[in-house]
Design a protein around this nucleic acid. Structure first.
Lengths: 291, 291
DNA sequence: CACGTTCTGTCCACGGTCTGTTCAGGTTGT
DNA sequence: ACAACCTGAACAGACCGTGGACAGAACGTG
């Protein structure tokens, strides 16, 4: 698993930092400390990608490289506080690629694009800067009849699948774990999946149960993985109302968070804090701090 | 038993790896270790085909050849045989890996296993020999209460996601195209996804619309991609009955196939041939021949 | 303001490594 | 005879390492 070693060219491709700069930063600040192959090639790990991205972030914030490197070295690893956002021009281009390819029921270009973006930025960033805006745009076009139901189905299905690919992967040992599920009877899991991506980006291990999950099932899964939190999604009001009693009971023994439009609306009925749908990233961060 | 020995040219033809490269890989990394005939010809076995395919798979994933060879050698893979099917011992092992990992809500081992299998065998084979049997086993255990609802949700969600990853990817230009969708109101898409994998394996381009798709949406998608066939899935009887009228209308202008348990049962109501759920592979082959 | 110093990204030259491919000369099988 | 195979060697192009140089920006000082 930790065998993912690669050479400097690959690191450069993944981060967008030129090979020369990577070497210069190592020579001057000892930013990275790669192991060497038998033939004296620098061999990097995934952590180095993270460190390099953090470095990029500081530099973009006008922090002097020397000092930025110092900060990065101090920050050891962890601290995914970094927000190296995607440049506006790239976002626009990405949105138009998504738009044009998914509109024609072609997933190949979209897949390629996202794959490239995730190579450079973290999934959470890609999600925040590209996917979420695209979904908003899609929703808007759908409401005013510009996008057909078929296009909406295809696009949201593709994006959910794609996000799942990022959200899955159980976290490193020692990390917090969350069980994610839709309230029983609830079939809209897109928002939940998105939330899973962000959580995972914050270091959580995510166990994804999907849509229409009985409360008892969520409970047993949470027990099985010793989850630190159960995250439930409710888009429509009826399923949430129907499950209210079970949920209240679940909350007595487990740390439960309910999110989604329905949860926002029927706030009064539930005792625990809810997530605001408007800002998934903020909600995930809040959950991380609270747990 | 696996006494089918063949020479380097045959190995090259079976794998698409050039003779020179096979020799180079042997000389440099000791990738294969063929026995020799009396006249000093390299004699390979089916295991070598598997190893070579795994190697190809890694290389395609941008892993440096030297390192890929290391992984292949390390993966022993004792006996991952080739085309005709996966050897029984490996199937048993795969099933137990799936069972044990998914039961504990861990997808990493399962993901790793499947990834390795598709490196060697085609997705259709993996699906037929491993995934489908596992799903049957899961269903059986679920019915007799051995598997919890949570486990079933998690496992089927994971497998569906994984299969989608194989089924997607629009086909090569010139290939036939199919639009896949669940009948409106139908939320069980696992079988449909599986069917998509097999179709794609047979050279189709698959446009996957997912669950609960209005008939009109399926039609417009089919028109947009100029689909040669529309494949609809119906697990529960009610949604199918409700959509019967729309379906009949759709069939007048498009080539439609309806599959799934409900379609099997309510056969009389629908004019066109249906797919038998029992044998997805056969059904896909039949569709290919008929279109 | 003028000047020197430092910082930083970029570039170059030279040599080594990695890897697919090619060639030459000889052997085996049909 | 001819195709397929063997060995050993070499080659080309991409990739990487080290060390050094350089130009522009930032900064501090007289």
């Amino acid at each position: 698993m930790s065998d993912a070693l690669f050479r400097i060219g690959e690191l450069s491709r993944r981060t967008g930092v030129s090979i020369d700069v990577i070497r210069a930063w190592e020579r001057r600040y000892g930013l990275l400390n790669p192991s060497r192959s038998d033939s004296n090639f620098r061999m990097y790990t995934r952590d180095d990608v993270a460190r390099l991205r953090l470095m990029q972030h500081y530099v973009k914030q006008q922090v002097a490289p020397a000092r930025a490197a110092e900060l990065v070295r101090q920050a050891k690893t962890a601290s995914l506080e970094s927000n190296p956002g995607i440049p506006a021009a790239d976002i626009r281009k990405a949105l138009s690629v998504l738009h044009e390819s998914l509109e024609r029921f072609e997933d190949a270009p979209a897949d390629q694009l996202l794959r490239r973006l995730v190579g450079v930025f973290t999934p959470g960033i890609v999600f925040r800067d590209v996917l979420l805006p695209y979904l908003r745009e899609l929703g808007a076009r759908w409401e005013c009849g510009e996008a057909s139901i078929a296009q909406e189905h295809f696009a949201s299905g593709f994006l959910e699948h794609w996000m799942l690919g990022c959200a899955r992967r159980t976290g490193r040992p020692g990390s917090r774990r969350a069980v994610l599920a839709c309230v029983p009877g609830e079939h809209h899991s897109l928002g939940l999946t998105a939330f899973g991506v962000v959580l995972r980006d914050l270091g959580w291990g995510v166990t994804f149960l999907g849509r229409d999950v009985p409360v008892a099932a969520a409970r047993s899964a949470a027990d099985a993985v010793r989850a630190d939190a159960i995250v439930l999604a409710a888009v429509m009001p009826e399923p949430l109302a129907a499950a209210a009693r079970d949920l209240t009971e679940l909350m007595e023994t487990h740390s439960v968070v309910v999110g989604g439009p329905a949860a926002d609306r029927d706030a009064g009925q539930l005792p625990k804090p809810r997530l605001l749908r408007a800002d998934l990233v903020g909600a995930a961060r809040a959950l991380t701090l609270a747990t």
